[in-house]
């Protein structure tokens, strides 16, 4: 934890500076966390809900943050858990209605007004969305966010070796799907 984070943490612990410091924390992390969630759930409205919940959870849990990790890692963990819980609930809801959430999501993605890609990028996103959640999470963090395996390991509490293997399998699957769609 660098001195800026320590300073921010001290401000977060004091009732007089809490609101200002929390605003600073949100503004510093809202964008990376937004994209982290968006890559998992694809749709803007769902991302917005999860991001709000993430910061509300962080706000409520500020007193429990012991500084064992950086604030960024802590926020990423909350966002990841919130996203996985959201996806699980969506899957269950779709299942009770006899639908497939993955299929629903792929259809929604094509019609999403905030999707800004061409056909090839749509193919890639569809291939990513077809991966199991944990694998998708690892792939997105490595491929788009360019996080190191050590950073991902801290967020997901998974060994570097397992992450490397998972990323390798995910990349293979995606490349196969892209080739199969294009050729």
């Amino acid at each position: 934890m660098n001195w800026q984070e320590k300073h921010l943490l001290r401000a977060l612990r004091h009732p007089d500076t809490l609101h200002k410091a929390f605003e600073e924390l949100v503004k510093a992390h809202q964008e990376p966390l937004y994209w982290h969630i968006r890559k998992m759930v694809a749709l803007h409205d769902d991302t917005n809900d999860i991001l709000q919940n993430t910061f509300i959870k962080a706000w409520k849990g500020l007193n429990n943050f012991r500084g064992e990790s950086t604030l960024s890692t802590w926020l990423y963990r909350i966002a990841t858990n919130e996203t996985l819980t959201f996806l699980e609930q969506k899957k269950q809801r779709a299942l009770t209605l006899g639908n497939d959430y993955q299929e629903e999501l792929l259809q929604q993605l094509s019609a999403d007004p905030y999707f800004d890609g061409d056909q090839l990028q749509l193919v890639l996103q569809k291939a990513i969305l077809s991966l199991p959640e944990k694998q998708r999470l690892i792939f997105n963090m490595k491929y788009f966010s360019d996080m190191t395996y050590e950073e991902i390991s801290q967020v997901l509490n998974t060994s570097v070796g397992a992450l490397k293997a998972s990323y390798h399998h995910a990349s293979k699957k995606i490349e196969e799907q892209i080739k199969a769609t294009i050729l």
């Binding site: 809202q30 968006r38 890559k39 803007h44 905030y114 890609g117 061409d118 490349e175 294009i182």
Partner: peptide, 24 residues
């Protein structure tokens, strides 16, 4: 055939509503 190392694919094809982060 395109591969994952293609820089075009590494761009996220998503956008946000105008001023979203300013009002978040």
């Amino acid at each position: 055939p395109k591969t994952l190392s293609d820089p075009q694919l590494q761009q996220l094809p998503y956008k946000t509503p105008d001023g979203y982060f300013d009002t978040f």
